[in-house]
Structure formats: structure tokens, C-alpha cells
Design a protein around this nucleic acid. Structure first.
Lengths: 205, 205
DNA sequence: TTTAATTTTGACCAAATGGTTAAATCAAAT
DNA sequence: ATTTGATTTAACCATTTGGTCAAAATTAAA
């Protein structure tokens, strides 16, 4: 089998179909038959390429993990000033999320149901925290920022940014937003969220 | 059957067990047999009290909906000044969430998988939005607050408050917080979140 | 062209699962 | 004590579901 997955190959069709069904229905709600139908192939082929439902799921889950998350947090490894990093992160994160709208709730749910899946993410987030900590410290010591806990900061920013995707049906339903309005609503947050955070962090003279 | 569910009654034992299992495993992952075991009764009894898995699930889901959500948003119906309402909401919401730590991800996930379940919530959130809108408008017109979209404000506050519960395993894992530290982390947000929002809203002289 | 290896399929299977039923037990009323 | 109605149980049932297998079809190698 190997790693040579040319585009349009059976393996890729399966992964595409599995991603769609797993994300929509979750690990338990997904049916192997439905994935096979979605991929336009025989159910036995699923087991030929991926031994079991668990292994197929794992493949999807890990792919999301190793592609999606690092992409979102890559900014923090750059050498830009913190203020710019923050703005870029939110903007970039929103774009990545918009392109993978249903991933977050899926991932969060699966992690909650089986925290073992966390794996590498722990390390990566730890690194991000350490980097941000250093920058906050510098800005604090130079009298520009007030003191603030890094974990609080990160979880506030991520929470604000992520929430609309997790609660998409609720927000759209409760506030009767059509697709266009919802999208504008998301775009506005690229500016709003950093503004709110920086407004709080920065010490006024 | 009726509504007279004395404590310790079979019906209540079932609901308790079902809540536990459904919240942990979700609609598809939950097994009727496991619910029966958890309640210490025969599986057929589940079908005697609640005709089907769907109906049992619906009972759990609606209970969470009609008890949990209104409790969290009740503050907005009071006559306190907006600033106090905001503080009380966050503090109250955090307490309710702490006591029902696994409900949010469960509800959000089930709504995402079947948005029809939204039901009444739509109306209630609409009312909250309208009430907040009026208060923001007054404060804006009297020169105390800057202009801000109500839906943005609400979703920012809710997002910040809710996120730690949705990502509890991630936050605890990635930042190595023990239960005690995590709880302190949550408590701190009762003050932090209103502070950040009001700091942004209020116009400085 | 033959041969060998790989990919794909249809038919099938055992286990799990939601649900049913008829009998047994229990509580209340007569 | 007997009857009546609700509650509980064990044994079953039909269907669904993940998974297997041998054979067919296709592709690659000789």
C-alpha cells in the first residue's frame, strides 16, 4: 500500500469520504457502509486499505490533528512583535476554521470522549505557551503591558475565536443570520478580538 | 405514568443513568444495556418507561435544555444595571457550568449533528439579545459606552466563559493543570472576563 | 503471451443492539 | 382472600453492523 497516494486514488477517495462521514456523525454514528457509498466503492475495500473502523477513524483524526492545528498556531513561531502575532493568529485561525468549519466540534467531542487521543498536541501547546510567556514578560517588564497569566490569555483568545464555529447552528438560528451575514460576523472578529485583548493588556498613559 | 417522579423512583433512576451515559458517550455511542446496568434494572424496563432510545434521549436532552439554559441566562431579565448584569451572568454561568461540566460539549455536539433539536432556545436567545441591545444603546447614547454589535458582545462573552469547559481535557493536559489549579483558573475568569469586556466598552475620559 | 501480483467485488458471518412479549411479582382496592 | 392494575423480569427476535473470504477483475512483470 505505502504512502504514495496520488490524487483520485482509491485510498484518497476513502479518506475523503471517511472524513466527511466521521465529522458529520462522529465515531459511533458513522457507518462503514455509508463511507463506502460516499466513496463509491465496495465496503470490503475499506477493510482492505484500513484494517478496521478504528484504524480508519484514527487516520482521519490524526490527519486533522497534524495538519490543522500546527497550521493555526504556526504564527507563534515567527519573529514578529507580539501585537502583530496576535492579530495574525486570530485572522489566520479564522481562515483555517472557515475552511474546516465542522472540524472543531468534531475534534473537541472526540477528545472529550477519549482524552487519550490528545497525543502530541500537549507538547505543541506547551511550546506555544512558553513562547507567549516570554513575550508577555518582556512587555510587562518594559511597562507596556499589565501582568497577565498566559494560559488565561490564550484560552480567552482561542475561546472567542473558536466559539462561533462550535455554536454555528445556535448563533445562526438564535440570531437569524444568513450565510452572508454570518461570514461578515466572522470577518469582523479578526479585528475585534485583538482589539479587545490589546486594549486590556496595554497600559494607558 | 404521569409527572409524579418521587425521588428514588425507577423513572428517576433511569433518567439519572441515561443522563450519565448519554452525556459521556453521546446519542450513538450510548447503549441501552449500559443505561440499564447503570440504573440497576432490566433493559426492558427502559422501554416500558420510555418507548425507545430516541424518546429517552429526547427526555434527557430537553431536560438539560429547559433547566440548564434558562438558569444561566436568567440574570438578563433582572433590573440591575448592565455592568452588574454582565458580572453576575459570567459568575453565575461559571457556577452552573462547573456543576454540569460535561453538558456543554454534549449539547453542542448533538445540536450540530441534528440542528432540529434547537427548538425553544432560539426564542430565548432572541429575547436576551433584544434586552441587551436596549441597554447597550442607552449607554452608548449617553456617552458611556462605545458602539458595539450585540451579537458580537454576547458571543464573545459566552465564548470566553464556555471554552474552558469544552476544551477541559486539552487545557488540563496541555498546560498540566491539576483539578485544583483548573478550578482556580475558572474562578479567576469571573473577574477577568467582565473586566476585559467593560474595559473595552467603556469610553475613557 | 503468460504469469504473478494487486485491487475490487459479492456473498456471507458472528456479534451486538434496539426492541418485543408473555409470564411473574407486587401493591392497592374490594 | 381475591381481584385488578401497574411494575419488573428473563427469554427471544429481527435488524444492523463491523468484519471476513474466496473468487473475479484488473494491472504489472516476466
Amino acid at each position: 500500500m505505502g504512502n504514495n497516494q496520488k490524487i483520485g486514488s482509491t485510498e484518497e477517495k476513502i479518506l475523503e469520504a471517511a472524513k466527511k462521514v466521521f465529522i458529520q456523525k462522529g465515531m459511533y454514528g458513522a457507518r462503514m457502509q455509508e463511507i463506502a457509498n460516499e466513496a463509491g466503492i465496495n465496503k470490503a475495500l475499506l477493510h482492505y486499505y484500513f484494517r478496521s473502523k478504528d484504524q480508519l477513524f484514527e487516520a482521519i483524526f490524526q490527519e486533522a490533528f497534524t495538519e490543522f492545528i500546527p497550521k493555526a498556531f504556526s504564527v507563534f513561531h515567527s519573529k514578529k512583535p507580539f501585537e502583530e502575532k496576535l492579530k495574525l493568529f486570530v485572522s489566520n485561525y479564522i481562515d483555517v476554521l472557515t475552511a474546516n468549519s465542522y472540524l472543531p466540534i468534531f475534534m473537541l467531542n472526540e477528545i472529550n470522549q477519549n482524552p487519550d487521543r490528545l497525543g502530541h498536541m500537549v507538547n505543541m501547546m506547551g511550546i506555544v505557551r512558553d513562547k507567549v510567556s516570554v513575550e508577555l514578560k518582556i512587555n510587562e517588564e518594559e511597562g507596556r503591558y499589565r501582568a497577565m497569566d498566559t494560559v488565561q490569555l490564550l484560552s480567552l483568545v482561542i475561546g472567542m475565536t473558536l466559539f462561533p464555529y462550535l455554536a454555528k447552528p445556535i448563533i445562526k438560528g438564535a440570531f437569524s443570520l444568513d450565510n452572508e451575514t454570518f461570514h461578515a460576523f466572522l470577518e469582523e472578529r479578526k479585528i475585534l478580538i485583538p482589539e479587545i485583548i490589546l486594549n486590556y493588556l496595554k497600559i494607558k498613559n
